[in-house]
Structures are given as C-alpha cells and as structure tokens.
C-alpha cells in the first residue's frame, strides 16, 4: 500500500513540475497579483522594516509539495503591544499568497508553523503587522529540488 502511494506521488510531482514551468508568465498576463502587490495591499503602502520577524525555512527542500515553514515575531503580546497579523508569501508561485495568521492576546507568543507548496526555487516572505500600525518583514530563500503541485 505504502509503496504504491509513493510511486504515485513521484509520478504526480514530476508531471506537475513540467506543467508548472510554463505557468508563471501566463499567470502574470492574466493580471494575477505579485508578491509586491500582496505586500502593498496588506500594509496599505506603509513602510516595512526588517527585524523582529524570524522566518524558519529549510535551505533546500527536496519536495516542494510540503515545505515546513515557521514564523515567530519578537513581541511581548500584551494588550498595548502585540502582533495582529502575519502574512506569508511565496514570490515564485503562480499565486504568491500562502496564508495569513491572526494572533490574539490568548496567543501568548506570536509563533506559528505550517507546511506549504513551492513551485520552484524562490523566496518565502513573512510580513508582520504590529498593533501600533508598523510592519516588519523577513525573507528566506528556499531551493526546491522537485516543484510542488501547481502552487
């Protein structure tokens, strides 16, 4: 059972990688937002500083279908000073959006992890929105050996 599934996965991934290679230009022509657009929309054009946000990604991801990503933001998480949202983007995917985490006072610490799909080698970006309206960003390059299924 297990072997069958693995074989199936390998075939699926290979086919997807071929399919993806031709996609980004088509996606752009269709007017899909870029990572820059997504950041602008999230920040409303405000300045984005570096620091405070730490993005933890593997340097090399053998399988782009499931790449572990962790983000943590240096914040006391009190009522006056906390992180409200963190936007995660992948700038080389057909669509850059990955997820938006919302934290609350009950979070205690602004830290979350998930697993994402990366179509090819690219940057993963995290932008954090603070309760005082400032924004912080971190960017990590991830080398992808086998691209994830179509984004």
């Amino acid at each position: 059972m297990k072997l069958d599934r693995r074989e199936f996965m390998v075939w699926g991934v290979g086919a997807a990688a071929v399919a993806v290679a031709g996609l980004p230009t088509i996606a752009m022509a269709a007017g899909d937002p870029t990572a820059e657009d997504a950041i602008k929309e999230f920040t409303g054009g405000a300045e984005v500083k570096s620091g405070r946000v730490e993005l933890d990604t593997p340097e090399i991801a053998e399988n782009g279908n499931t790449v572990p990503v962790s983000v943590s933001v240096d914040s006391p998480m009190t009522a006056d000073d906390h992180v409200t949202d963190v936007l995660i983007l992948a700038d080389g995917n057909p669509r850059p959006g990955v997820a938006t985490f919302r934290f609350t006072e009950l979070s205690g610490e602004a830290e979350a992890s998930t697993r994402i799909r990366l179509a090819k080698t690219q940057n993963v970006i995290a932008v954090a929105k603070m309760s005082d309206g400032t924004f912080f960003m971190d960017k990590q390059p991830v080398k992808v050996t086998i691209g994830g299924c179509g984004g």
Binding site: N65, A90, F101, G151
Partner: peptide, 12 residues
C-alpha cells in the same frame, strides 16, 4: 478567539 488563519492553495 485564540488564533485564526486564512489559507491559500499554497498550503500543502
């Protein structure tokens, strides 16, 4: 609310 997230197709 403790935590919530909007999820795009790029999540595995």
């Amino acid at each position: 609310l403790v935590f919530e997230t909007a999820i795009e197709p790029a999540v595995s």
